[in-house]
Nucleic acid binder design. Structure first.
Length: 858
RNA sequence: GCGAGAGUGGCGGAACUGGUAGACGCGCUGGAUUUAGGAUCCAGUGGGAGAUCCCGUAGGGGUUCGAGUCCCCUCUCUCGCACCA
């Protein structure tokens, strides 16, 4: 009987589907386990990254089922997004058609992988039955002031007539129109007030022990809570006051000039009628024309221009010049900074460039600073000087008192500032959730009444050939009636950022068909939070942060009771492969390279770095080819065996072959000896064993222990698989030995073989179901309980002790387990090799680590 | 520039709390089987010297009886970024 993966995999997939074994049903009597992998964007085909992600999840889901948990393991589609629009333009089709075709194709592929999803809960975010509830949530947020509109600056391409994301800007130009410079345009956009929840999101980082530290660190840094002060600088010759935010109010006595962001609303007022007006306006215009990528790149020079006006340093009462500078960000702090060139490197460079005044206000403990001679800013701690009443105090210790001093003078106050900005969700795109807002000349901004939801995205229109959304050109969509005054009105034609859909889809999986609201309170509170979330590290910040924000908002709106969506998080590494590049034809697919040469022109191919697999770099492997060749089990196994999930996986075709070979070995192990194995029952531990059999019995139980621990506590599937490989090797050794095998021997073998099959079943579910059946069982492995190990089986009579002299390994000895520290020490010192290395030298110290090692220090 | 990670044989990786560095697999070498190849099985496989040692976890320093693991510095690579005042 030969191992035929294609045939048996399809057979078992059909069996699982028919028996509904993956259907999740709410059952209060059982402990729930909600396992979720990040849902895919329906791009057309699954890629290796998906396969890896979903295999990891499937192993855990199957493992938890076998451990008796009531498992929810759903799958769906993050179906809105720009690639659908681009593909539709390219193929002259419709985004919806493209998306739904892709969903069908990818669903077939996922099913072929044997993933244990409850497909009855499948959802697609482009379905009006999904996004209607998102629109409702948006309206609730609008009502509570969490959704609001404000002006913002965006990258704009005149030809596309659309906003560009930073990644769509290349060398300051539009990616579609490299001849056209991108401009900065002021635009009205919808925002969600994530800043209102910044403090809570930050505090709850402490309550997520199941998240990787690095992700929490990145999130904390992203939120960037900083304590500082607002300081008010009155303008000379006017009543205006310029406010700055600083975390370094200790340096306020050293503030010798003021910088405004080019977008700052005071700029126009400041320069009005002055001779500098023209120059400043020119500078502002030039800066604003730059796209945000170029403007903030480190190679861009820090530039500024004097406005011709001054303001007063509120503590020294000196007049200091006001400049406009390109490095000051409008949307951080107040859009203006006090510059302290002596103690901030950026300010220092800027001051040197423009010949501005410097004043030292902090001195290091061991030297004096001189404004004339210093070559860089002094940014470390020290003692305050030139700082009025604060002279002689340590600068950090004085932070609070200086803030209080400013407050007492009415010139400032303590404050907390966040780095995180509100979430801009307006997109000038077609393929997204319409924002349910109506604009009326009489009534202003009017929310769409709840009973009019959903605002359906019209499907019967054509994409614009140059890109950009067709919605503003579609009167049938935007022409509407004001819900308040019943007059003529216009719909919002922007759609929402697709991150909005992915911020609550995990809630909706718990009650996908529910039609009385976004969430069925009973079901959502049974399943949520997600016990284990698995997905790519690239989502460490945005998606995970937005989901945490939404969860808290929905809790406050009473839609559910949880505060955090994901109890445990596993961030998997990327799948990488080297690139192949032809000097003539750019990146090449693996099949376009033959013998190191480009098949198009014969030029030598340059093998590049090992980087994340991506279509643009063409360093991709199509999982479908591997499935067709080796079957799903081999692909699943290789993805897990190649490296631990949180590390990047470097793709190597040869490794796949190894996994296939191992599955064949397991197959042969069972079928070759099936008659003898099935004649006995599995060993139950009652007969006394010795020698090889005793050792195999122990190995079986060691393996159960190791695999359980690796899957449950560490997600180290690679070492779990290695452990099973070792067990298989040992069974083969026993079978190959010349010793006569009686029934007891075969029963020990049977126990080992059955353990192998059961332990491997979450990883390679198809072959193991087949082998389980061949072994004479008539129940599916899905109904078998996860095995537990027998403590007695692990016992040994001898223990290996490592003997060291001065920390170097010199010998290894076996001692009875009954030996205590004393006896081990005596045995070690008596050892001939150890004696040899001690020689004539006096023994200074002997360190004995119980059951492990002896180190003799001489 | 800032932030976060990583660096172990020819390769992927193992070593979980400081205690035998290189488990397991790939590749390679030799052998068995075979007309041959493939498949399978057995043996070997960090480097050097050679029968008992020396050197080895990017490089340098430190802590320790003992460091791949902890601390400091340097280098290289990857990822993220919004010059974070």
């Amino acid at each position: 009987m030969k191992y035929n993966p294609q045939e048996l995999e399809i057979k078992w997939q059909a069996y699982w589907e028919k028996s509904c074994l993956f259907k999740a049903i709410e059952d209060l009597s059982k402990e729930k386990y909600y396992l979720l992998e990040m849902f895919p964007y329906p791009s057309g085909k699954i890629h290796i990254g998906h396969v890896r992600n979903y295999t990891i999840g499937d192993v855990v889901a199957r493992f938890k089922r076998m451990c008796g948990k009531n498992v929810l393991h759903p799958m769906g589609w993050d179906a809105f997004g720009m690639p659908a629009e681009n593909a539709a333009i390219e193929n002259n089709s419709h985004p919806a058609q493209w998306t739904y075709d892709n969903i069908e194709a990818m669903k077939t592929q996922l099913k072929r992988m044997g993933f244990s999803y409850d497909w009855e809960r499948e959802l697609a975010t482009c379905d009006p039955e999904y996004y209607r509830w998102e629109q409702l949530i948006f309206l609730e947020m609008y009502q509570k002031g969490l959704a609001y509109k404000k002006k913002t600056f965006v990258n704009w391409c005149d030809k596309c007539q659309t906003v560009l994301a930073n990644e769509q800007v290349e060398d300051g130009c539009c990616w579609r129109h490299p001849e056209l410079e991108v401009t900065i345009k002021e635009m009205d956009s919808w925002f969600l007030k994530i800043t209102e929840y910044a403090d809570e999101i930050l505090d709850y980082c402490e309550k997520l022990p199941g998240w990787p530290d690095r992700v929490l660190t990145m999130q904390r840094n992203w939120i960037g809570k900083s304590y500082g002060a607002i300081i008010r600088f009155p303008m000379v010759g006017s009543d205006e006051v310029i406010e700055v935010f600083t975390t370094r109010q200790d340096t306020v006595f050293g503030a010798t000039f003021m910088c405004l962001a080019p977008e700052h609303p005071l700029v126009n007022q400041v320069i009005k009628g002055l001779p500098q007006e023209g120059e400043v306006l020119g500078f502002v215009e030039r800066t604003l024309r730059m796209d945000s990528v170029t403007r903030t790149a480190d190679f861009t020079a820090k530039e500024g221009v004097f406005t011709g006006r001054y303001c007063l340093n509120p503590v020294t009462e000196e007049e200091i010049p006001i400049l406009v500078a390109n490095f000051v960000l409008f949307d951080y702090g107040t859009g203006a900074i006090m510059a302290v060139p002596t103690h901030d490197q950026r300010d220092f460079e800027f001051a040197k460039k423009y010949g501005l005044q410097l004043r030292v206000v902090i001195t290091p403990p061991d030297e004096d600073l001189n404004e004339e001679t210093m070559s860089e800013a002094y940014v470390d701690e020290g003692v305050l000087v030139n700082s009025g009443p604060f002279n002689g105090q340590r600068n950090l210790a004085a932070l609070d008192s200086i803030a209080e001093y400013l407050e007492s003078l009415g010139k400032g106050h303590k404050t907390v500032n966040f780095r995180i900005r509100d979430w801009g969700i307006s997109r000038q795109r077609y393929w997204g959730t319409p924002i349910p807002i109506i604009y009326c000349d009489k009534c202003g901004t009017v929310p769409v009444p709840e009973e009019d939801l959903p605002v359906v995205l019209p499907l019967d229109l054509h994409m614009r050939p140059n890109g950009g959304s067709p919605l503003p050109f579609e009167p049938a969509f935007f022409e509407t009636i004001c819900p308040k005054c019943k007059g003529e009105a216009r719909r919002e034609t922007d759609t929402m950022d697709t991150f909005v859909e992915s911020s609550w889809y995990f809630d909706r999986y718990t009650c996908p068909g529910y039609d009385k609201g976004p969430l069925d309170p009973e079901r959502v509170d049974y399943w949520m939070p997600v016990d284990q979330y698995i997905g790519g590290i690239e989502h460490a910040i945005l998606h995970l942060l937005y989901s945490r924000f939404f969860t808290k908002v929905l809790r406050d709106f009473g839609h559910h009771k949880v505060s955090e969506p994901f109890t445990n998080l596993l961030t998997q590494g990327m799948v990488c492969k080297e690139t192949e590049e032809c000097p003539e034809h750019g990146f090449l697919y693996p099949y376009e390279v033959k013998d190191g040469k480009c098949i198009l022109c014969g030029a030598g191919v340059i093998t590049g770095n090992i980087v994340k697999m991506s279509k643009s770099k063409k360093n991709v492997v199509d999982p479908q080819e591997l499935i067709d060749r080796y079957g799903a089990d081999t692909v699943r196994m290789f993805c897990l065996f190649a490296s631990p999930p949180d590390k990047d996986l470097e793709w190597n075709d040869q490794g796949v072959e190894g996994s296939y070979r191992f599955l064949n070995r397991v197959w042969r192990l069972v079928v070759t000896h099936i008659d003898k194995i099935t004649r006995v029952t599995a060993y139950d531990g009652r007969e006394t064993l010795s020698g090889q059999l005793r050792s195999l019995y122990r190995k079986t139980h060691e393996t159960i222990k190791k695999v359980t621990d690796d899957i449950e506590n560490r997600f180290h599937f690679n070492t779990a698989i290695s452990a099973v490989m070792e067990l298989v090797n040992e069974v083969n050794q026993v079978l190959n030995s010349k010793e006569q095998k009686d029934d007891i021997a075969w029963s020990v073998v049977r126990e080992a073989v059955e353990a192998t099959v059961v332990l491997l079943s979450p990883v390679v579910p198809h072959i193991t179901e087949e082998l389980w059946q061949i072994l004479g069982h008539d129940n599916s492995l899905l109904k078998v309980s996860w095995p537990s190990y027998n403590e007695n089986a692990l016992q040994t009579e001898k223990r290996l002790i490592v003997l060291q002299v001065n920390g170097k390994v010199r010998n290894r000895i076996e001692v009875p387990v009954s030996y205590g520290t004393k006896e081990i020490e005596e045995e070690a010192l008596a050892d001939a090799k150890i004696q040899h290395f001690i020689g004539e030298k006096p023994v200074k110290k002997v360190i004995v680590v119980q059951n492990k090692l002896v180190n003799v220090v001489v």
